[in-house]
Nucleic acid binder design. Structure first.
Lengths: 152, 152
DNA sequence: TTGAATTGGTTTCATTATGAAACCATTTGA
DNA sequence: TCAAATGGTTTCATAATGAAACCAATTCAA
């Protein structure tokens, strides 16, 4: 592979996000963390990921501030992996992925898990809106490019 | 690698989405497509991706119904790659990634591109809400698991 | 209208990332 | 107190990726 291109320098925020969480496993681990999993063995069982890979991914997710290792809640000797605030703020990303998957990747009638408000049971969704709350589609949104500050 | 695990059978819609668009390049290509790029050489230049990889990715994005190949708009002989409706519906995913990146992956004061309403110039954003419009965070949302239809 | 450059790929090859399995030290648990 | 589970690390084979070379068809420029 020679060297996987980094998008750190890109001025597109989506590209930087993908640079940080765009690999095969990271978002799945984050999903499981949202789901309440905290222990190495839980992630490993849930994802069927090789242990060495899980180990490395947890390490980099911690290095990137998305997870943090905390002592076991029950006083045990093991560590637990918890989402940081930065990690929890990936919630809209997860919901967006879920919403798209629900719409396109299930047969009609096929069952899937659903995300609901814990208190009211209402379905949870998300939409792109302008500041004043109007719905907006890709055709009406434009990306304002920014002059590269490196090149004055 | 022996065989990359497929999540097709998973009943979590996020997992299926990641199975389809969760690889390193696909969402970057989709981002460029949102940005109006249509030609092989445009994607290649924009992403710095190897041509064989781009070729293969375009092929699978088409196979998965996210892009479609259409004859050149200007009557030329080449093809153009356009988003399908399924592809355009990834818009919230892109916006969610962008929003997170803006928040966490730029130095204070560092410039980045911004997404705005073409007509009013207003910033575009997205939030997770319940059906009746209340904002909701990860702590208040729960995933309703679904019994596996395969195992009655 | 001919020659050169561009486009849109494919093929080949070297290298990296991944996955499976084996291994191991430490903690539980019975 | 012995056995199993936990939380990894190491080793090795293989798959995915990237760079470069190559090539046919198209477009451009003189």
């Amino acid at each position: 592979m020679v060297k996987r291109r980094s998008l750190k320098g890109d001025y597109c925020p989506s590209a930087r996000s993908l640079d940080v969480i765009g690999d095969w496993w990271s978002l799945l681990i984050v999903r499981d963390a949202f789901d309440g999993l905290t222990r190495f063995s839980e992630f490993q069982k849930s994802l069927g990921i090789a242990k060495n890979i899980l180990s490395e991914r947890l390490r980099t997710l911690i290095a990137r501030g998305i997870l943090k290792a905390v002592p076991a809640a029950n006083g045990g000797a093991h560590q637990e992996y918890h989402l940081t605030e930065k990690g929890r703020d990936l919630f809209p990303v997860m919901v967006a992925l879920r919403q798209w998957g629900e719409q396109y990747l299930f047969e009609p009638g096929e069952k899937h898990s659903r995300l609901v408000d814990r208190d009211t049971g209402q379905a949870v969704r998300l939409d792109v809106r302008t500041e004043d709350g109007r719905l907006i589609g890709p055709d009406r949104a434009v990306i304002l490019k920014v002059a590269d500050p490196e090149q004055p």
